[in-house]
C-alpha cells in the first residue's frame, strides 16, 4: 500500500431513530449527494463510507444505517458496538418519533455500552424540516429535550432540500474525533491491536461481542 503523508482517522458513526424518519435519506444525501424518493425500509443494517477532511485531517467515516422498527433493536448490539458517535434522528412532522428519542438513546447506551455513558457524543437531528405547515416539532422543545439529556447538540435538517445535511454529519464526525482523541490518550494500547486473528476455540459469545478495533490507516 502506498504511504500517504496524512494519516487517515477511521470513525464509526451510527445513525438511529424511528422507522421512516429519514435516516437512509440523510446518509444517502451525505454520501452520494442525491435524494432518492424510492427507498426500501432498512432491514438489518448497512454501512457506507465517506472520506472527508476535517480540521486538516483525513477522516474515513463508516456510517451505519440501521433498521428503525423497534423490535429490531434486539439485533442492535452488533451494530452499536464500537461506535465513536451516534446521530439520533426524528421526523419533525411526526411527534411520536420525537417522543421516542429517550428510547433510542437508552437502547444505544445499553447495547452499544460505550465506556463514557454520560458524555458519549450524540447529535440529535430533526429531519424533514421542509414539511413546515406549522405543526412541526418546535425547535424550542427539541432544544429543551437536548438540554435535559446531558446538553446534547441539536440540528434541524432536510434531506429532501439538502438543508444542513453536510453540517450535521460534519458535527457528528468532529464529535467522534474529539472522543477518539480522549480515548487515544486513555487507551494507548488500542492502537497496537493490529493482530486480529480469531481464536475459534474461544466462546462464541465472545466473538459476538467482539468490539471492532480502532485503527489508523496509513
Amino acid at each position: 500500500m502506498e504511504k500517504k503523508k496524512n494519516k487517515k482517522v477511521f470513525l464509526k458513526v451510527v445513525i438511529i431513530g424511528d422507522s421512516g424518519v429519514g435516516k437512509t435519506s440523510l446518509i444517502h444525501r451525505y454520501t452520494s449527494t442525491r435524494f432518492l424518493q424510492d427507498f426500501k425500509p432498512t432491514i438489518g443494517a448497512e454501512f457506507s463510507n465517506k472520506e472527508v477532511v476535517i480540521n486538516g485531517k483525513t477522516v474515513v467515516a463508516q456510517i451505519w444505517d440501521t433498521a428503525g422498527q423497534e423490535r429490531y433493536q434486539s439485533l442492535g448490539i452488533s451494530f452499536y458496538r464500537g461506535a465513536d458517535c451516534c446521530g439520533i434522528v426524528f421526523d419533525r412532522s411526526d411527534h411520536s418519533s420525537f417522543e421516542n428519542l429517550d428510547t433510542w438513546k437508552n437502547a444505544f447506551l445499553k447495547h452499544g455500552a460505550p465506556k463514557e455513558e454520560g458524555t458519549f457524543p450524540f447529535l440529535v437531528i430533526g429531519n424533514k424540516s421542509d414539511l413546515d405547515d406549522g405543526s412541526l416539532v418546535k425547535e424550542r422543545d427539541a432544544q429543551q429535550w437536548c438540554a435535559d439529556n446531558g446538553n446534547l447538540e441539536y440540528i434541524e435538517t432536510s434531506a429532501k432540500d439538502n438543508t444542513s445535511v453536510e453540517e450535521a454529519f460534519t458535527k457528528l464526525i468532529e464529535k467522534g474525533m474529539e472522543r477518539e482523541k480522549v480515548n487515544l490518550v486513555e487507551l494507548p494500547d488500542r492502537m497496537s491491536q493490529k493482530n486480529k486473528t480469531v481464536n475459534l476455540q474461544r466462546d462464541v459469545a465472545k466473538d459476538v461481542n467482539r468490539k471492532p478495533q480502532k485503527k489508523k490507516c496509513c
Binding site: A45, S78, P212
Partner: peptide
Amino acid sequence: VEQELPIEGVFAP
C-alpha cells in the same frame, strides 16, 4: 469478523 461485518446486518434481511 476481520472485515467487521456483523452477520446480523447482512443475513437478517
